[in-house]
């Protein structure tokens, strides 16, 4: 598999799950992503860092075509190729719903539906047409176990998701994202609304999840990126400044701009 030029940072032999190729994106007249290129390694954690407004969330939300929900947003060139089938996720003829069935998302603020814990997790299975009660039960249990929430909620699956604590709610949302067996899970600053203890549990969970699924995470917290990611991408003003193995980015960044941001001199 070919890695785009200038980004040969991956470990040799690593599989790529997706590639962002020369991607341009506009919010109306605002050029939010400029020729962004980045590999996403299979079953690794890739962190997107950078100051507010740099385009990291914008890039993340391209992966599940969230931008399609709002008028005026425009994918203006390039694409995101998903492997192994080489589908360009941003192609006009690719249905955004198909993309969202393959790539799920966990949001900044926990957003459980005002339904029961069980129904929250089952929802991503129900939209896929699953009706069999036993099968649903099994998949919901597996997802809640995968999100390290099962032991806390197994005896109150019919309670409202909103009755859980913030950290539990976020793990519920992770279970919802996990239930459908996605190829990639997108995390958009998943711990920014949580206290340190809940944050630690989510970070631990992310590290465990990468055994089975590719993870892309946007974070404001550089220590978090350093702790949990295998690869880090630093973005600034809509451009990909530097991409590399996390240790290298944090210890020996090749670009001055990256170093300034990481050392806190800027941003």
């Amino acid at each position: 598999m070919q890695i785009p030029s200038g980004l040969e940072a991956g470990v040799e032999g690593d599989l790529l799950k997706a590639e962002v190729r020369d991607l341009d994106f506009y919010y109306g007249g605002f050029h939010a992503l400029k020729h962004v290129t980045m590999p996403v390694h299979d079953r690794k954690v890739t962190a997107l860092i950078g100051p507010s407004g740099c385009g990291k969330s914008t890039l993340l939300r391209c992966f599940n075509r969230m931008h399609d929900l709002y008028p005026g947003n425009r994918y203006a060139g390039g694409g995101i190729v998903l492997h192994p089938d080489n589908t360009n996720l941003l192609a006009q003829e690719v249905d955004p719903i198909e993309v969202r069935m393959r790539i799920s998302m966990v949001f900044q603020k926990p957003n459980p539906f005002p339904k029961s814990i069980y129904e929250n997790v089952a929802y991503s299975l129900r939209v896929r047409g699953m009706r069999n009660k036993n099968e649903l039960d099994d998949r919901v249990e597996a997802a809640l176990k995968g999100a390290a929430l099962w032991n806390e909620v197994s005896n109150r699956l019919n309670e409202l998701g909103a009755n859980l604590s913030g950290g539990q709610q976020q793990r519920l949302c992770i279970a919802r994202a996990l239930a459908s067996d996605p190829e990639i899970i997108l995390f958009d600053e998943p711990t920014s609304a949580l206290d340190p203890i809940a944050t630690a549990s989510i970070e631990e969970l992310v590290t465990e999840l990468k055994e089975n699924v590719t993870i892309l995470i946007v974070t404001h917290n550089m220590q978090q990126a350093a702790r949990i990611s295998d690869f880090t991408a630093y973005m600034y003003l809509g451009e990909m400044v530097e991409f590399g193995i996390t240790d290298q980015i944090f210890i020996k960044p090749t670009k001055k701009a990256t170093e300034d941001y990481i050392t806190g001199r800027f941003g």
């Binding site: 599940n64 969230m66 929900l69 719903i97 969202r100 069935m101 799920s104 998302m105 949001f107 957003n111 459980p112 539906f113 929802y123 991503s124 939209v127 896929r128 949302c173 919802r176 994202a177 459908s180």
Partner: peptide, 8 residues
């Protein structure tokens, strides 16, 4: 957005 992100 949560609903759409589930593939609804």
């Amino acid at each position: 957005e949560g609903s759409y992100a589930c593939g609804a």
